[in-house]
Amino acid sequence: MSSHAGSVQAGQIQRHKLVDRLYHWVMAVCILTLLATSLLPIIGWKFAWLAIHWVTGLVLTVAVLFHIVRALFFQKPMSMVVDGQDLQNLGSGGRPGKYNLAQKLYHLAIAVLILSGIASGLVMLRKIDTPWWRRDPYWFSDSSWGVIYSAHDFVAMSLVTMIIIHVYFALRPDEWHLTRSMFRGWITPKEYKDHFDPKRWNAEEEA
């Protein structure tokens, strides 16, 4: 087995493949860039933000499309869907599969927010000049544009809340094995045994 940095070695259990970790960090950089370029000027830090913002938005769109295709056709999409066992575990304290209930709900919320942000953002692109088209403000009525802008604005502010929560959990010592796995890709067999139900997440089979 190869031993270069980030690869899974003997005695380690793979949780996230390199391609999935890359996607996560590309998305993280995109979201942080999008939030910085949209919210910093609003709170008083003025700079030329628009071009960085929409180009980053397009990068995020491509990344999310890649993730959707990969998750639906090359991974196990049901591992991220809330099921009855998750709800039973709430009371019994049973171990989760690859993702616990909180992670599934967080993923659902972030998916709704990001897809809403991308959808509204792509429509808003029609209102600015790009290398491919001149702007056309008459696509929708004033009030329809207002609804689209409002959706985009609420997504941006909601993402701030979500990122605060996400960073907090990533930094918690009891979640460190999950954070490490997003950097290095693996968890230890003990962590696997302590935190996960092998019947719901068969790591060996998935690897």
């Binding site: 004033d142 207002g146 802008y149 409002s150 604005d153 609420f154 701030v160 979500m162 605060i164």
Partner: peptide, 17 residues
């Protein structure tokens, strides 16, 4: 007409987090 969300709400979203 509505032109967008009020950014005065930003502090509340930060507070919620």
């Amino acid at each position: 007409v509505i032109i967008g969300a009020s950014f005065d709400l930003l502090q509340w979203f930060v507070g919620a987090g």
